[in-house]
Computed example of a mutant assay.
Amino acid sequence: MIAIVKDSATPDQLDHFVSWIEGRGFKTNVSRGENETIVGIIGDTTKIDPFLLESMDIVDQVRRVSEPFKKANRKFHPEDTVVDCGHGVLLGGGNFQVIAGPCSVEGDNLWDIARGVHEAGATMLRGGAYKPRTSPYSYQGMGERGLELLCEVGHSLDMPVVSEVMDPRDVEGFLDRGVDVLQVGTRNAQNFPLLRELGRTNAPVLLKRGMGCTIDEFLMSAEYVMSEGNPNVILCERGIRTFETRTRNTFDANAIPVVHHLSHLPIIADPSHATGYTRYVRPIAYAATAAGADGLEMEVHDDPQNALSDGAQALTPTQFSDAMRRISLIRSAVEADLD
């Protein structure tokens, strides 16, 4: 349930109203937008009489919200959320960012990759130090040394660093070593202990859609993080598993406008994992940009044929630079004022 507050309400009246609601056992979420203030009421709202609320001087109107995700819901928070990723990089609310780098941190070649993507216009550096792999015999990442190298390289270029965390026990260590954005991979999209632990931090969380998750389930995963107090969630559409076998996953372009309609959270796209093949990465990146994504996450490697993981879907620095020029043109066309 949401209560839309009258423009004439004073701060004291708003505080009194919130206290009155919370005194009856409900949680509240106050969103102050440019045009209106909304108080989200979270709990079993069947116990609240909406006519009683509307009779209060401070309340303009009351609406019930049927979706189970409350904090991630645009009805509770009409304004777009803008996430501060560190180093002056903002994502969401018109701030478009590109995250690029290798699937796995492999060694000192990270310096050349990072410089290349930075020069091409990427604003954030990605790299896996601990890799969740389908096979236990595949390369699992450099571990702690990989995190240290990733942060050293990224921060030397004044780029926020993005890396995937898999275990709730590792969250504090990632933050202590300087990781700016904690990524949750598709296999952990419904790892609820991990999501709750991330929610107890204030760090930006890049949450990838589970390979079998509906959009509502995707938003409920974000709700797990936000319900613990962390509002800094970035959603990522990375393709879902369907009966199609010609690509690694099926990229769901629908999810981008649907999420923007349902939620105030920013959503980016990962065309690398969506397709699994270098030849398809750039077209899907262009499609996601045109669909209104708030950013992209792309895998780039200086020698994809010899990459230790996911080389088949990595762009070379030259290919990435070409993609960035075209992405800029698409954004200009989509955002052009035709009047």
Rank of each mutant, 00 (worst) to 15 (best):
N73D: 14
A100I: 05
N249S: 13
T81M: 11
L150G: 03
G88A: 07
K75C: 09
G154M: 01
N254Q: 11
P193S: 08
V334A: 15
G107K: 02
G295K: 08
M166E: 04
E144L: 13
W111A: 11
V62L: 10
C85P: 04
R74M: 01
D339C: 08
P136Q: 11
A285I: 04
M166S: 10
S332D: 14
D84C: 06
P50F: 07
A189H: 00
A3Q: 10
A189L: 00
G127D: 13
L198P: 09
I41G: 10
V179I: 15
P168V: 06
Y286G: 12
M1Q: 06
T46A: 12
T318W: 07
P68F: 02
C151H: 02
Q61C: 10
E67D: 12
P231S: 04
S221Y: 00
Q140C: 01
R32N: 14
N29R: 07
D167K: 01
D60I: 01
E335N: 14
P168R: 04
D339L: 11
Y224V: 01
P136A: 11
M298V: 15
L195K: 00
L150A: 04
S221T: 00
V59A: 03
V259R: 13
T28A: 14
A323W: 02
I4M: 09
R326C: 05
N230T: 04
Y277T: 12
P271E: 11
P132N: 04
R126L: 07
D339H: 12
R241K: 14
R241D: 08
E144T: 11
I330P: 06
L315P: 03
L147A: 02
I327V: 15
L149S: 03
I240W: 00
I234R: 00
S321L: 04
H261V: 06
L338S: 13
A336K: 05
L157E: 02
P266L: 06
P78T: 09
H264G: 12
D84A: 09
D322M: 03
D170K: 08
A255G: 12
V161R: 05
V82N: 13
L147G: 03
L150D: 03
S163K: 02
R246Y: 15
M159E: 06
S309C: 15
T250N: 10
S138I: 05
L125M: 03
V117W: 03
V184F: 03
Y280D: 15
M211L: 08
A333L: 13
D337L: 04
R115V: 09
S332E: 12
H155M: 02
L175Q: 11
N306G: 12
R169M: 09
L262I: 01
T214M: 00
N191G: 03
A314Y: 12
E172G: 11
E148R: 13
I41Y: 10
G94K: 08
D15E: 14
